[in-house]
């Protein structure tokens, strides 16, 4: 199914600085083809009747039952099951990479815009959405809310933050787990660089707490294909002073193999813990991210 947003490349949307505008464009473009309104999902399903006891709200009396049977009954509904999502955004230095094919969009920018779109959509679906940003530690934690005004808070935070510093996914995630009181959907926006084992261990920890986890792994095309030809000095984004001067052509093959191993171990680990790992490249439309979220969201029903 084609969406308007399919044609909105990250590079096109780069000029839209207001995240809310961007998110609205993307999300409404994306959802315009969906027949199911997010409001329809508002839970009004009847559960049971019970005898009125003093203290119950008068307005919840079922007057039609009273008319028939002259007794006071309270109408009980099934509780509203709003989704509590937390967007976990990686603000480490490696996210600051902007490749040649992405038109100057850094992975972090891509990730924030993606996060904005997701938050917008979630709020508009009356789902609760929170935001946690981190690098070596948690920088900001906004618990999930479903109010529309809450979206403002999240978008402000997204616009404010700048990436920098190293990544340590494992420790950060363990720390975060303590702050998430209720189980919900965790959407991790990160390049997942770092030690695979500790990352997977942290994910397992989340899973243990019955969180649903969706990992949006943000890649740059350069990182996937290593297209460098000429002599290049690679300066480390996370650790100042770490640099390598080399002939990339000589290394490309080995690098790609190393990359494949890394990705493979991530995919295997995620699958083991029933975690969705969705790789994204910064030159891909945001809509794909939303589609992935929607699939997950519907699957939860």
């Amino acid at each position: 199914m084609a969406h308007v947003s399919d044609f909105l490349k990250p590079s096109d949307l780069q000029r839209i600085t207001n995240l809310q505008v961007l998110a609205r464009q993307v999300v409404e473009g994306f959802t315009s083809g969906f027949h199911r309104s997010p409001h329809k999902g508002y839970s009004v399903e009847f559960k049971q009747h019970r005898q009125y006891v003093p203290g119950d709200e008068i307005r919840r009396l079922d007057w039609s039952v009273f008319a028939r049977s002259d007794r006071h009954y309270i109408r009980e509904y099934e509780e509203e099951t709003n989704l509590r999502s937390t967007l976990i955004l990686d603000r480490s230095g490696s996210m600051n990479y902007a490749g040649t094919s992405a038109g100057g969009v850094t992975k972090y920018e891509y990730a924030t815009k993606l996060a904005a779109c997701l938050a917008y959509m979630m709020v508009h679906q009356a789902d609760g959405v929170g935001l946690t940003t981190f690098d070596t530690q948690i920088r900001r934690h906004i618990p999930p809310r479903s109010r529309v005004s809450h979206l403002r808070v999240i978008l402000d935070e997204l616009e404010k933050g700048q990436p920098g510093g190293e990544t340590d996914l494992g420790d950060v995630f363990h720390e975060l787990e303590a702050k998430l009181h209720r189980r919900g959907l965790l959407i991790i926006l990160s390049d997942c660089f770092g030690e695979v084992a500790s990352f997977l261990k942290a994910l397992a920890h989340f899973r243990h707490a019955h969180h649903e986890i969706l990992v949006f792994q943000i890649w740059d095309r350069d990182e996937l294909e290593f297209p460098f030809k000429t002599w290049t000095q690679f300066d480390c984004l996370e650790q100042a002073g770490v640099k390598h001067l080399l002939d990339p052509a000589m290394l490309r093959q080995t690098y790609l193999e190393n990359l494949a191993t890394f990705r493979d171990s991530l995919v295997r680990g995620c699958r083991r813990h029933n975690i969705d790992l969705v790789p994204f490249c910064t030159d891909e439309p945001y809509a794909n991210a939303l589609a992935a979220y929607m699939t997950r969201r519907l699957g939860r029903r």
């Binding site: 490696s94 290049t232 000095q233 690679f234 996370e238």
Partner: peptide, 14 residues
């Protein structure tokens, strides 16, 4: 005349 790239995926390269 090398090119300088600010590189993120250093753990792969290293």
């Amino acid at each position: 005349r090398f090119k300088v790239v600010q590189w993120g995926a250093m753990h792969l390269l290293s």
